[in-house]
Amino acid sequence: MPSYEILRLIWWALLGILLIGVAVMDGFDLGTAILLPFVGKTDVERRVVINTVGPVWEGNQVWLILGGGAIFAAWPPLYAVAFSGFYLAMFLVLCALILRPAGFKYRSKLTDPTWREVWDWALFVGGLVPALIFGVAFGNVLQGVPFRFDETMRMTYEGNLFGLLNPFALLCGLVSVAMLTMHGGAYLSLKAEEAVASRAAYFAARAAMVLIALFAIGGVWVAFIDGYVVQGVVAHDGPSNPLLKHVATSAGAWLANYGQQPLTLAAPVLGFGGAVLTIVLLRSPKSFAFAIVASALSVAGVIATAGLSIFPFLLPSSLDPSAGLIVWDASSSRLTLFIMLIATLVFLPIVLVYTAWVYRVLRGRVTAAYVAANPTGVY
């Protein structure tokens, strides 16, 4: 069995991979929904947009469940604090996500234009709200979340929903919206027929430009917010008790990670470079297939930037900095992590192979002619 330290690092990396998987796989579904009212000029074109994700969105959402499950099993204190403190925000996300299956199923049940337009905007909300809230959550993590533990490890959260909507967190929310809009537009440029694809490419390129600007502003802003630094030496194979360490705050501490580990600079470079490459590749229909890859790399770079910036923290505490959760004191037991790792090594490749096979079967563009020829067989 690997050492406790190695297992904790592996599960920290796997958590990051799963979060990137959520953003890449479910992200283009959300981005497609955000663009739906704008790239589809007619009812048929909007049905084309919906049917590009119709067969795959449920499978993509499994990545969200996997991410939540991994947090629950590998990092129980993180699950307890995040899912309790962000309860109302997550409730909003769930309400928005519920609009997706309802919109897909009910939109085409009636031919009334008003009925269909209402569901189109419901799908838009179902894409925009989760994208925004997920980014807001990352913004609050970077600033620290107002929670503490007492001596019996009972958690107290002293924040509220409106406190989460602070200026820096909203900036991160806008970064998330721009990022997923870019990703959804790149996907549509590859999967939709020419007219819709051209509009989607236009919006995706503009979203990429906004992403680059907001990501840069966020990087500068981070230099002026308080980061968190663990004082002294913490045993990497010690007990999962966050009260056994001391943490101090320091302005710009998050950026110090990049000075200590220069290789971590690859993450923001990938975030910026992937967005720039997406813009370039979207100029020609011949390179749309590569644009979605560049967009996915940009998404991965943006998320990795946030995760690497706060390492070894998982969830800092602004209320009691020493109660913040770090990789070395917030995990499950060594045996639990090992058993989960074995299960992951067995089943994750199966999931990836099956997913690749599904997308191969569903390759090709969705056209208006196909939608018109299948009035009851598609959304």
Rank of each mutant, 00 (worst) to 15 (best):
L94D: 10
A137L: 13
F124L: 11
V276E: 08
A178N: 01
I326Y: 00
F104L: 12
A356G: 15
A192Q: 06
A216I: 13
V81F: 03
A137T: 10
G173C: 07
G307I: 08
F124P: 00
F288A: 13
R365F: 08
G273T: 01
I225G: 01
F149I: 07
D226F: 04
V378C: 11
L325K: 01
Q143Y: 00
V293H: 06
G67I: 06
A23C: 10
I303V: 12
L94G: 08
P37D: 04
G307E: 08
T181A: 12
T32F: 03
V141S: 01
A291D: 02
S176L: 06
G173A: 03
L345T: 09
L282N: 07
A82Q: 01
N160F: 05
Y202T: 13
W75L: 04
V233I: 13
Q260C: 08
A343L: 15
V358F: 09
K41Q: 13
I6M: 12
L319Q: 12
V136N: 03
T114Q: 14
L211F: 08
V196A: 06
G159V: 02
P262Q: 09
A186K: 03
P242Q: 01
F224R: 12
S284Y: 08
Y87I: 08
L263D: 07
P285W: 08
P349N: 05
W12E: 00
F272N: 05
Y228S: 08
P316E: 02
I98G: 13
V280D: 06
R148L: 11
T278K: 00
G103K: 07
